[in-house]
Nucleic acid binder design. Structure first.
Ligand SMILES: [Mn+2]
Ligand SMILES: [Mn+2]
Ligand SMILES: [Zn+2]
Ligand SMILES: [Zn+2]
Lengths: 148, 148
DNA sequence: ATATTAATGAGACTTAATCTCAATAAAATA
DNA sequence: TATTTTATTGAGATTAAGTCTCATTAATAT
């Protein structure tokens, strides 16, 4: 309880701090969108956030959801995930816990993985080509255990 | 010359064989699209193929380009590449030469890499999670040598 | 040569995402 | 606190990749 509440306060201040740093305003809508995204560990798309907030009675617009998510991604509060189905997904970025994804093409479930060796090999490849990596996409598509 | 001609004939027969296997017809449009894609080593999108063939005087439709590319991808004559800019790219699939990509976010150039260790580590990750990999996406985004 | 049926072209449609602009609400100022 | 300033918002128009429809055309089987 207390811990949860603390966590919420901390992340709301992370939002406030980020907006301040960017010279942006701490609005009701931005709070609601951020709170919605950071309070779940799923990989959610903009449309879904929009409808969730609407159903909850908030008079919010699609445009605001997209605009806010952009700000959050640019400031590393959210990670953007592209699994090639035409909709971008977003997840709360627990800093220092980077991970990539396995995507089940049958049921759509998304699993996570992290492998230091792969990360290191990526760096070597880039170094060798004198390429400065900013970010990367790495997804394994296939059939999950349950679906086989 | 002779070699080139042979290669074209071979790949046209690859197309013919694939279409036959699938019970599909060997049409002018499918030949032109396949020829256009297989005769370049770039990463091209459907719209670009459409306009190239149009400029060349062929009365082809967008729908046919998309439909044909689908068939070619499903039959592994083409690889589909998604670099997250909203347009799918395609490249001639030289079988047994799988590779992944580095994408320069400044100039858009696409470089290729292949690393057996990474491929193997991917398999281990999947095995451990009892996940059956069908394909994967692996892109490194950043700034290329020329753009730094 | 003719019949059969898959493939095509044109353009309507879908869908995620972006843009526009008048109205609204944060925050700065008095 | 009231007022002013200006960023943000909501509604809906717009864009763009890709899909769908359906009458017409062309590849193949007979
Ligand atoms: Mn994740
Ligand atoms: Mn390539
Ligand atoms: Zn599954
Ligand atoms: Zn570059």
């Amino acid at each position: 309880m207390r811990l949860n509440l603390n966590k919420i306060i901390i992340t709301m201040q992370a939002l406030k701090a980020t907006l301040q740093k960017e010279g942006l305003r701490y609005t009701r809508q931005r709070q609601e969108i951020w709170n919605e995204l950071r309070s779940s560990d799923e990989h959610r798309d903009a449309e879904e956030i929009f409808f969730t907030l609407r159903k909850r009675g908030l008079n919010i617009s699609r445009a605001t959801v997209y605009r806010t998510i952009d700000v959050l991604v640019k400031n590393n509060l959210l990670d953007k995930l592209d699994i090639g189905d035409g909709r971008a997904r977003f997840e709360y970025n627990e800093k220092y816990f980077h991970h990539d994804h396995l995507v089940c093409t049958r049921c759509g479930k998304i699993f996570e993985f992290h492998n230091d060796n792969i990360e290191e090999l990526q760096n070597e490849i880039a170094k060798q080509k004198n390429f400065k990596i900013l970010h990367h996409n790495h997804q394994l598509f296939g059939i999950c255990e349950d679906c086989q």
